[in-house]
Amino acid sequence: MHSTLVVLGYVAAFMTPGLGCLPKEYVSRDGKCCPMCNEGTVVRRDCTLKSGTRCSSCVNGTFMNKPNGLSNCIPCIVCDQGHGLFVKQECTATTNTVCDVSSGCFCKELMDDTGCSLAQKHTQCTPGERIKELGTRTKDTVCEQCQPGYFSKDGVNCTDWTICLDTQVQVTEGSTSTDVVCGTASRQRYCLYIPLSLFTSALILAVLVITGRLTKITNYTHNRISA
């Protein structure tokens, strides 16, 4: 008699809509408590009084990572190579794809179970800047402007401007992206020497001419007075 009551009680619980199900059971579409399908499978047909839940395996490209009462597997994520991701672990019937960050990129959105879901290329420092902090898998590159008196041609390191020698002259001033340009001072002096020499020669000649004329005038005047 006791066994009969237990069986009848189980059947009543099985058939009663809305009744709380056990941890490894799910509520079917018609309100019954049915056994869940295992990981890697989903429900193909709900249980009946005569048979348990019928399950089907997840197909390629889908997975199910926990006991469930669902009718569809979850699509595996795709690691987008065009956005700096690559497949670290392939998707299986029970696990999702795990993506990782390609070299030269950092992760912008990190998921606990699937790795990185969105990556971006490291920032390239521009001329006039230097790399203050190198980029990593989780952080972008940090750039910094070169200080006055320093320049960076390739955006990697800042180098101090060249100091021209005593025998040189500065042809072009430096900037944050270009160095000082020095030139040979001897050419500059030679170019200045030619017009200066010509001017000096002309001045001496003019003095000689004027002096000669004054001498002639003086002699002429003296002769006139003597006569």
Results as ranks from 00 to 15, higher is better:
K24R: 13
S57P: 06
D46Q: 04
T138P: 00
C164R: 00
C76T: 08
Y220D: 13
C73Y: 01
R45A: 15
S51D: 15
C58A: 04
S175Q: 03
G52W: 12
G82K: 07
H122Y: 09
A227E: 11
C146S: 08
T136V: 12
Y220W: 12
P148Q: 08
C107Y: 01
G155F: 00
G61W: 13
T221D: 04
E25T: 11
M36L: 08
R189C: 11
R54N: 13
C164T: 10
D30N: 14
C158I: 11
C76R: 02
A12N: 07
P67H: 06
L196A: 15
R29K: 14
P17L: 10
S71V: 08
D140H: 04
D140G: 07
V42R: 00
S197C: 15
K139F: 09
D113T: 11
A206T: 12
T167W: 12
P17F: 13
V42M: 08
E144V: 05
Q168C: 09
P23T: 08
N65S: 14
A93F: 02
D140M: 12
T167A: 10
C55N: 07
R187H: 09
V156P: 02
I217D: 11
V180Y: 04
C47E: 07
C164A: 11
G20T: 09
G69V: 04
C21P: 01
L134T: 10
L118G: 00
V171Y: 05
S117Q: 13
C164V: 04
E133I: 07
A202P: 00
T48E: 00
T16M: 05
S177Q: 11
R137G: 03
G52S: 10
V98I: 14
C125I: 00
I77L: 15
M36Q: 13
T95L: 06
V181W: 02
V181D: 02
T162H: 05
G84P: 01
R213T: 13
N96A: 00
C34I: 05
T126E: 03
L205K: 07
D140V: 05
K50V: 13
C143N: 05
R224A: 14
T162P: 02
G149E: 09
C125A: 02
F86S: 12
Q81V: 12
V207M: 08
V156R: 11
T141S: 04
F106E: 00
T176E: 06
Q188E: 10
F199G: 09
N68P: 02
P35A: 03
D113C: 02
R187Q: 11
K132E: 07
L49I: 05
S197Y: 04
G104R: 03
